[in-house]
Amino acid sequence: MDSDKFDRIVLDLLYGELDELTTAAAKRHMEQSTRARDIYAHLRATRQLGVLPAHVPPPDFEAALLAREARILAELPVRHRLGRMVSMLAGYAMRPQLIMAALLLLMIGSSLMFVRTRPALRSAVQVTERGAPEGDLDVVLPLTPPPSSAEPLNPPPSEPRAAASAESAAAMPVADGANTRTVSDSAPGDGQDAFDQALQIYRARAYVEAQRLFERLSRSGHPRAAEAAFYAALSTRNIKGCAAALPAFARVAERFPSSLAAHDAVWRTARCQEQLGDSPNARHSYESLLLVPTHARRAQQALASLASEHTPEGAAAP
């Protein structure tokens, strides 16, 4: 340390505002420099003696001051007083105990929310009495009437028989709406079990396996072959999408003409065509359902919706 630097820091040294390293350097400099030692000694002596006598404020100083302080607070504008109140409340809100309590309440609240939402999720796949998943609410599939006692439990595979079965089901009263279908009172047989098993697999959204089982059932001449073919097509749609499902729906309509499964297949075809942007063919498909009692109303609504979507905005109503 040189003399210039010492002169610059000597006051900091006197008042203890230097860091340890610089203090040590300054002290080393003073050991070597008489001038530095002399400057510091005079400053220290001056400071040591130059202490002014201290006086205490008058006795009423504090009381008078606090009285005036209270008056000032009382005269604060409402905005400032509100600010103080908010600040005070915020101060309490920031206390750790309150934060922990709030977190605990939040955790309990969110847990209750999860507990409440579970049944709703479960019911979402149980809305149709036929057991079709919620996404397939608009599927109109009547239950196949039970085979007559004279009929064998496992009839030989024949498409006309399956179609006739589906047709007879179509003749049963079917209420308009997704979940008010005819109720099967058939006794479960082996074929019925196989269909139900496939349906359960379908409901579990294992569509690949469901498709394989439904395809097999539809080809085996099962009494519910038409439905099985339709579900196989639906599975295809769920696996590969609408474009891949269109030929499958078309095959259902061809194999089981005039059956409810065929009408549902046409309905699904129309929905897929609409989804794919093929409005002319969708319209054509909907129109083909206008004469089918079970589908006419929905087809009309779909056509109206399709027409409104393609009507230019602002066009004058006829």
């Binding site: 002014l52 006086h55 100083f61 504090e62 606090l66 607070l73 600040s87 005070m88 915020a90 101060g91």
Partner: peptide
């Protein structure tokens, strides 16, 4: 000062007692 801002007047009293001699002198 933070406490005083939040309305704790006793915090101001503490500050007053801490500094009144220095300010007065």
């Amino acid at each position: 000062m933070l406490r005083y801002q939040r309305g704790d007047r006793s915090a101001f009293v503490t500050l007053l007692r801490r500094y009144q001699v220095a300010v007065y002198n």
